[in-house]
Amino acid sequence: MTTSAQKAIRWILGLQVGLALLLFAGDLGARIPQLLSPSVAPTLERLVSPGDQTRRYAPRRMTTGPDTGPMPRRLTFQPFGDVLTMEGGIAAGDAARFEDFLDREGPFTRIRLNSPGGSVGDALDIGRRIRDAGIITEMQPDTFCLSACPYILAGGTERRVHITASVGVHQHYFGENIVLPAFTAVEDIQRGQGEVMTYLNDMGIDPLLMRHALVTPPDEIYVLLPEELETYRLATEIGAS
């Protein structure tokens, strides 16, 4: 290998290291304010009212209900007749697990949700499968559907939400890129947001729902009021019993 070729390789490697360091520094700079000054918003236990709808988002501290254990880290499937309860975080690969479970244990007419969210891509795939299967989605009293979970809720042919349930949205991560230039990471985020908005439109949900998500940081959640759930068509029915 010639000296000039060796210099070129060293230059390319140095450029890649430099880009990685710049991206790392930018990511660290964006995270330092959150570390030094985490959200001071109230917790989800405090009821929301118009103009007071931002709550602290701490999914690892959430439980499945009063006096119960922590939320499972990935979705669990609990069938009871033709009703399926889906509970826990949405992890990568859960859409495939749901597909297999539905093929093996279905059909179901209703799916009840209780989830702090997680993988956006898996939530979109699950929502599409629910719509294709003609299943109703529901939220029971005092349950949660946050972050990516509302996209699963949106998949229901009917979407029934109890008035004491909490449905909330915020900014999402669509994967972090530490190899490619920053503009490519921005493109990934924009592409992800575009996919979400297309999905909502396909499901008959008003994509303007995303305006609340885009201005709410990842460590907080914007909890939608019942009238907002109906305005954006995320809920077709708000129940009190």
Rank of each mutant, 00 (worst) to 15 (best):
96 A>F: 09
67 D>A: 14
31 R>V: 04
52 D>E: 14
210 M>L: 02
207 P>I: 03
81 G>R: 07
80 F>I: 01
160 R>Y: 09
61 R>P: 07
135 I>P: 01
202 D>H: 11
240 A>N: 11
175 G>P: 09
57 Y>C: 03
232 Y>Q: 09
59 P>D: 00
46 R>N: 12
180 L>M: 14
201 N>T: 15
84 L>K: 02
47 L>Y: 01
179 V>N: 05
208 L>F: 12
56 R>Y: 03
175 G>V: 02
42 P>Y: 00
153 L>G: 02
120 V>C: 03
17 V>R: 07
82 D>Y: 10
175 G>W: 04
188 D>N: 14
65 G>E: 08
109 T>E: 05
40 V>S: 04
109 T>I: 04
122 D>P: 15
79 P>Q: 01
170 H>P: 08
229 L>I: 09
115 S>N: 07
18 G>W: 03
85 T>M: 09
85 T>F: 12
36 L>N: 10
117 G>M: 00
36 L>R: 10
179 V>K: 10
94 D>A: 07
50 P>W: 00
183 F>L: 03
175 G>N: 06
216 T>H: 01
211 R>M: 07
73 R>G: 15
4 S>M: 05
88 G>W: 00
141 P>F: 05
228 E>L: 06
213 A>H: 04
91 A>L: 03
58 A>V: 15
104 R>M: 07
157 T>M: 12
170 H>N: 15
98 F>E: 03
103 D>L: 12
115 S>M: 03
123 A>E: 04
16 Q>C: 13
181 P>H: 12
42 P>N: 02
20 A>L: 08
204 G>A: 15
140 Q>P: 03
62 M>V: 08
199 Y>M: 08
194 G>H: 12
198 T>V: 10
13 L>E: 09
48 V>R: 02
81 G>M: 07
163 I>E: 11
35 L>P: 00
180 L>G: 11
48 V>P: 08
13 L>G: 10
